[in-house]
């Protein structure tokens, strides 16, 4: 098999137990480079738990998480700490927004640059030439990202004071600042109105244009169907279906899993 067909992210047999509860049950999932992949499923299906395992916040009970960064050898992510996983090129947003509320919008994004910069105590105290240049580069790069996300005018406000939709966008901006190769979005459209959702979908497409792959958890079916190249459907921690949007749409199991839920009008 030529290396180019290796999936960027390869999850196999991922299982996560919380005491007696099996939140993830032998989950298999792949993300190809450059794809937008959606992960859907009813509430409590285990989607967020999957993200938490993937980003190192939880240690999975069993299974493999493997990353094939372009131009580098395969990496096993299981035993890495969250910050190391971010260094490897995975960046995420949170379903329940976790911004640094008492820091400014710009600073939030600057934090994202942390793992790509290296000023140490010495440089910080003596403001060496190098540190000053690096700080400037951080500010400039962060401003550029804010510009792209349409947050420039709020750069100096406290992140906690932003309206909801802007906070979601700031979460994405912050994740982008870590220079990810795979962006993990946990319900980015939650709480957004139609107009904002539409803008978000343009944003996601623009991000993909820049060569990033995207793994997306979302309940908004219209958004999922219009954006995704590939969809995985979960229920009770298990994968119940996968395929292209039109395949999933007509899958009986999926319809059954969602039956009774009122958002199936997609």
């Amino acid at each position: 098999m030529p290396p180019s067909t290796l999936p960027l992210l390869n999850v196999s047999g991922l299982t996560m137990d919380f005491g007696g509860i099996r939140a993830l049950d032998h989950l298999d999932l792949q993300v190809q480079s450059g794809e937008i992949v959606a992960l859907i499923g009813p509430n409590g299906a285990g989607k967020t738990t999957f993200f938490n395992c993937l980003t190192g916040l939880y240690t999975p009970t069993s299974g493999d998480l493997k990353l094939n960064p372009p131009g580098r050898p395969e990496m096993r992510l299981n035993d890495l700490k969250p910050n190391q996983i971010t260094e490897q090129g995975l960046a995420r947003t949170f379903q329940n927004i976790r911004l640094f509320a008492n820091m400014t919008v710009l600073e939030n994004v600057m934090i994202g640059r942390h793992c790509r910069t290296k000023a140490q105590i010495f440089g910080a105290i003596f403001r060496t030439h190098q540190t000053v240049r690096e700080e400037q580069a951080i500010v400039e790069a962060s401003r550029a990202i804010l510009e792209k996300m349409g947050l420039t005018s709020q750069a100096d406000e406290f992140a906690g004071n932003l309206p909801y939709g802007a906070q979601r966008r700031l979460e994405i901006a912050r994740a982008l600042a870590t220079e990810p190769i795979l962006l993990l979005l946990d319900e980015p459209a939650a709480g957004m109105n139609q107009h904002e959702t539409k803008e978000l979908s343009h944003l996601i497409l623009a991000i993909r244009q820049e060569g990033l792959s995207i793994l997306l958890i979302e309940h908004d079916m219209k958004l999922v169907m219009s954006l995704s190249d590939h969809i995985f459907v979960m229920d009770y921690g298990r994968k119940i279906a996968e395929g292209r949007p039109e395949e999933v749409r007509n899958n009986l199991l999926v319809i059954k899993a969602y039956l009774g839920e009122d958002f199936i009008h997609a």
Binding site: T55, G56, L57, K81, P82, N83, T86, E87, A91, R92, F94, R98, L99, F100, A101, N102, M103, E107, M110, I111, G112, H114, C115, R116, T117, A119, Q120, I121, G123, A124, I125, R127, T131, E134, E135, I138, R174, A175, T178
Partner: peptide
């Protein structure tokens, strides 16, 4: 003052604000 206004200082503030998000943003806790 210099420490607080540096890359390290920002990381400290972020740690105070949200430890989990801090790690997820690539900061070594």
């Amino acid at each position: 003052n210099r420490l607080q206004n540096s890359r390290i200082g920002r990381a400290w503030f972020a740690l105070r604000e949200d430890e989990i998000a801090c790690q997820a943003m690539g900061i070594d806790k």
